[in-house]
Design a protein around this nucleic acid. Structure first.
Length: 292
DNA sequence: CCACGGCCTGATTC
DNA sequence: AGAATCAGGCCGT
């Protein structure tokens, strides 16, 4: 079926652009699991084509199709640099993911690269997640906090988690034990949600902001990674080095409740247009396609 | 409060 | 070939 939208959705940028790490490409489509349901998504001129067992409402919520997207872009486009990024990547969306899966994904992401993050989450799901049969092969649901908490640190290390193993295990234990109610953070104010996440091991400012933005409805969250730091300092401060906290303050002041959406466009511009990229280094992803 | 080094790991670079 | 460097940070000092 076709889920209609006001304008097309850029699925590759949205699903494989660093927000989520478990979508796989099947030809021109993307296959994944939402909740415990398999789903296939494909771009369509009038919206998003979907197949599989996930309800339409689940897909709409995940892709935030009910948001005033065009209106938000219009507001952000008052910024000249963002205006060109929006022209280039219109259809790039901020996702609304499951908070637990998002939390694990970004604990995994710390000081790590995308290919390894994907591999680690794959192995974690394969080891502890339920099977999800689908027309596109047997997928896996993402394992819940209890399932992850049951894994030993040595098991996680053997899967390649390295020093993140104890962080992940302890965080899972706390969530499973009810020390922190992730779902409740959706209705909490941003500063409160951010602070609560910071208290978890393996969760620093950047990871907490990613979870806030990509799963907890905190549109004002502005995750500052090395790319964002570089692009903001280059575009808005003439290349002067900025501390993450300063970048954060600048973004909050400039974009307010739409800072997170702005962050996605800045991030894509930085990585794909090479802004702030270090000398002599190709953009990530360009080296993954080898000729035989 | 801030700066700094170390850290699992695997790919890439030198 | 084998040693550095790096990758979407966090933690402890």
């Amino acid at each position: 079926m076709i889920v209609k939208t006001a304008s097309p959705v850029l699925l590759r940028a949205t699903l494989r652009g660093g927000q989520a790490f478990r979508w796989r490409e099947h030809g021109d489509a993307f296959v994944g699991v939402l909740g415990d349901r398999p789903v296939l998504l494909r771009e369509h001129p009038k919206g998003v084509e979907m197949e599989g067992a996930a309800p339409e409402a689940t897909v709409r919520e995940y892709l935030r199709l009910g948001d005033p997207y065009e209106r938000d872009l219009e507001a952000l486009a008052a910024d000249p640099f963002l205006a060109q990024a929006i022209t280039a990547y219109r259809g790039l969306r901020v996702l609304r993911q499951d908070p637990w899966e998002c939390l694990v994904a970004f604990i995994t992401s710390a000081n790590n690269n995308v290919v390894r993050i994907e591999g680690l989450l794959d192995r974690l799901s394969l080891r502890a997640g339920d099977r999800v049969p689908s027309p596109w092969g047997t997928l896996r649901a993402f394992p819940g906090p209890e399932a992850v908490a049951r894994l030993r640190e040595t098991t996680l290390r053997s899967m390649g988690y390295g020093y993140r193993a104890p962080y992940l295990r302890e965080t899972a234990r706390r969530i499973a034990g009810g020390d922190l109610d992730l779902a409740a953070l959706r209705t909490a104010p941003y500063p409160e949600a951010h602070a609560a996440l910071l208290a978890l091991p393996g969760v620093g400012p950047k990871v907490a902001d990613c979870v806030c933005l990509f799963s907890l409805d905190k549109g004002e969250a502005f995750p500052v990674d090395v790319w964002i730091d570089r692009v903001v300092s280059e575009v808005y401060f003439g290349g002067a080095p900025l501390k993450p906290r300063e970048v954060q303050a600048f973004a909050r002041e400039r974009w307010g409740a739409r800072a997170g959406l702005a962050q996605q466009f800045l991030f894509h511009a930085a990585r794909l247009q090479g802004i702030g990229a270090r000398e002599g280094r190709r953009a990530p992803g360009s080296g993954e396609h080898r000729e035989p």
